[in-house]
Simulated scan of single mutants.
Amino acid sequence: MQVFTRLKISSYLFLWVLVSFSHCKNSSSSGDNLAALLPLLNLSSDFNFCPKSPLPSEINIATTVVSASANISGFSDKNKAVNGICGSGELVGSLDVYALDITGAGASMILSWGGKTVKNVAGDDFIVYDNSFRVSDESNTYAMDPSVIQVSIDNINYCGFNPSYTGGSVNLMNSWTRFGGLRPVYFNMTTKPFTNGELFTKTNGSFLLGGGDGFDLENLDENDPNDIGCNAALITNIKTNGFKFIKITSAADVNNPNTGNKFPWPPGSYNGSDIDGVVARELQ
């Protein structure tokens, strides 16, 4: 597990240094060197030009950071969580992310759609984008940042999806159920665009066409012990009228009801979940 974690951290640091170096150099040779290296990293030469500005109006991305207090060096720009989705595919994690802490106040952030409401429609209602990527030839083994997802109408009482961890390897996707931060992100607003509808199209079983982790409001669970203010009436209200706020929390800061301890976290990781953005299927 430490090998997987170190691989993910190393890719962050290497890419960050590489991109920073390219920004500091104005010569054409440095740009040529970067362009030559990007294919080796499974990245497009347009890597530095994501996200688009302005954002595509047809993508229902969460646009407002309601609260966030983490300050991870190199990944402390809160705007990265609302400025667009910049996935890098199956084998590489995006750098356009806001990193949460592993535990404590900085382990959570709250986003919104600027006062708009996410509707409950058929199928998945929203997608959480992190920067997981596959780290072996086995399709189930990923460097992941499991996050607990909760939604609210009033930013006071939150309801979640009663996530479950089987106790298996932290890098096996099927060890985790109903978490964010599990699946890689293929959607890139610059190099691999999709329509909002295409993002919610299933492919390869539980995977979405643009990647990320989808959530259906019909799966909200009043029995989730971590949702103190949630009850059947509130869930019915959210299912009927939608929600306005989403809270994303590094799993290591949340109690696993099956053990009484916090959910595990990859050994050696220096930060918590990495948030690239959230997209809703329909808004009102």
Rank of each mutant, 00 (worst) to 15 (best):
L217G: 06
D227A: 12
L34R: 09
S67N: 12
F179G: 04
I110V: 15
S269V: 08
N42Y: 14
S57L: 08
L43S: 12
P146Q: 04
P264W: 12
S10I: 00
F49A: 10
L18K: 06
S30W: 06
I59W: 01
D276V: 08
I85F: 02
V185G: 01
Y142G: 08
L172E: 02
G268W: 09
N261I: 00
N60A: 05
E58T: 05
F187T: 02
Y12P: 09
L234C: 14
V185T: 09
F179N: 05
Y129P: 07
G212Y: 01
N241H: 13
L172D: 02
S11T: 13
N219V: 00
S88E: 14
P264E: 13
N174E: 01
G205H: 00
L55V: 03
S273F: 08
C159K: 01
S147T: 06
L234K: 15
D124H: 05
D253K: 11
V135Y: 10
S147Q: 08
T201I: 04
G93C: 03
P146M: 01
E138P: 03
F47T: 15
F243N: 12
K119V: 03
I102A: 01
L18V: 06
G74W: 05
K244C: 12
K119Q: 11
M144F: 08
L172Y: 00
